[in-house]
Design a protein around this nucleic acid. Structure first.
Length: 123
RNA sequence: CGAGUCGGUGAGACGGUCGCGGGUCGGCGUUUGCGCCGAUCCGAGGAAAGUCCGGGCUCCACAGGACACGGCGGUGGAUAACGUCCACCAUCCAAGGCGCCGCGUUCUCCUUUCCUUUUACGGGAGAGGAGGGUGGGGGCCAAGGAUAGGGAAAGUGCAACAGAAAGGAUACCGCCCCGUCUUCGGGGUAAGGGUGAAAAGGUGGGGUAAGAGCCCACCAGCAGCCUGGUGACAGGCUGGCUCGGCAAACCCCGCCGGGAGCAAGGCCAAAUAUGGGAGCAGGACCGGUCCGGUCCGCCACGACUCCCGGGUAGGCUGCUGGACCGCACGGGCAACCGCGCGGCUAGAGAAAUGACCGUCGCCGUGCCGCCCGGCACGGGACAGAACCCGGCUUACCAGCCGGCUUGCGGA
RNA sequence: AGGGCCGUGGCGUAACGGCAGCGUAUCCGCCUUUUAAGCGGUAAGGUGGGGGUUCAAGUCCCUCCGGCCCUA
């Protein structure tokens, strides 16, 4: 297999439209730990999409950008280890800044939790 | 070299790997909207922040004037404009410096008087003088700082408490004259006491029964004139002797202001509902087809088909070349202006600048080291473009540079 | 982007520019077997921060900080 694993993050993998966000919130399937709250919803695509929601209470614009960039980097580096075909919305649980490794671990385990939950519900 | 004060600059550097946004070029795919791949170039700030002012731009409204409402307010300039900037004026504050005082306190020295004691030196108390330290008062100079700094003699209003009296006022104690046996009564006065943030000019002299700008000199203030200055204002002369504070209270005067904002505005345009026009008596569904069945419609408020329109979601645009940046020259005290040459320097949209590593540099701590220096660990602020500019305000790590005043030392 | 409102003891809320109150809570005492309720009393201490105007500022003005609401 000539296809090497690429760690890119293109616009098609962003969750952009308000409609998409509303669909994910309406599905009401969430998993969380001390750092992150992950809302998930199947999207019928072969890949995952990522949406970020960081509100004013997590700091000024620089701190919020920092959180978003960390989440994007974590998603980019570990997207091949996530269950496919999900829309994920990430919401921070703590105003403190986590390290990249912590976010990657949290994202992976929470996405798998959410995926199992969705499978149980659809049965 | 030190102290004070004001201002400017600055916002770590280089490289590698993996990624992100945009432009250009090439290739592939494509539903012709775009997507993917590769190369290459570019990719946050001095405050991008707060949104406190001012403009550009866009749309809407609009004969002209006045009123209302809001903002601004020393003078002259700069500017597209400003509540901003520059220069100057006025008032207040002021590090510090230099003189002064029949000043206080303390130390030293000198002269002298008295007491005591001694052989003598000496000890104690007082007076005078000189010098030093320190404190206080007052004067001059002064880097620099602050000022929403027009008008209180257009009018209205406000000033608690205290005080006799708070604005063309008043008379508590007092002072003086007269009456009265005293208590007290009548009158004069505003020097003194007292209250207050503020008491109707201040100091000195004359004058008086006691007093008062009642009279005079100087000072402050006011009015007029002269001189200098574009002007705010400054200086001088003369006059009459005095006419308080607050307008960030109402207000008066002068100047400025049409409203809304890139979610402005323009273009394209699903689904559903709907408006206009044309055609037409059938149309849609079940079913392989006919028959058949169900629903809608049928001389119309018209099913169905076609065309056109407004318009929602959504998309495109506005969207980055500009009162732009750098350098040189000329004008100006300066803010700034003119001219020449060179440069292109973010354009996202659930919102791009990130992650990891290496080398060097900065700061702090610890260790080694006489110093130079070396090693280890840690730190690196405030903060993220959202149509674009000019300001203001606020936040902020280290370093560097300069102006002015002043102290000490040297040439 | 535009506009409005608010900030006062622990809590809720008043105050013409002129001594910062009131209720409740706290504390102490009475009543009660005890608690609650009730009655009486004491004190503490607060105008979000900074600056200005004024003789005097919670109040007027400027500027920051924090919170809430409305419109598109």
């Amino acid at each position: 297999m000539a296809e090497t694993r690429r760690f890119t993050f293109r616009k098609a993998e962003h969750l952009r439209s308000p409609l998409d966000f509303r669909r994910v919130y309406a599905r009401r399937c969430a998993a969380s730990d001390a750092w992150l709250l992950v809302q998930a919803c199947p999207n019928g695509l072969p890949h995952c999409r990522l949406g970020l929601s960081v509100s004013r209470k997590y700091g000024n614009a620089v701190a919020r950008n920092r959180l978003r960039r960390l989440y994007r980097e974590a998603f980019r580096l570990s997207k091949h280890d996530l269950p496919a075909g999900l829309d994920l919305v990430l919401i921070p649980r703590s105003p403190n800044e986590p390290t990249l490794d912590v976010v990657r671990k949290s994202l992976k385990s929470l996405a798998q939790q959410a995926s199992r939950k969705l499978n149980r519900q659809s049965l």
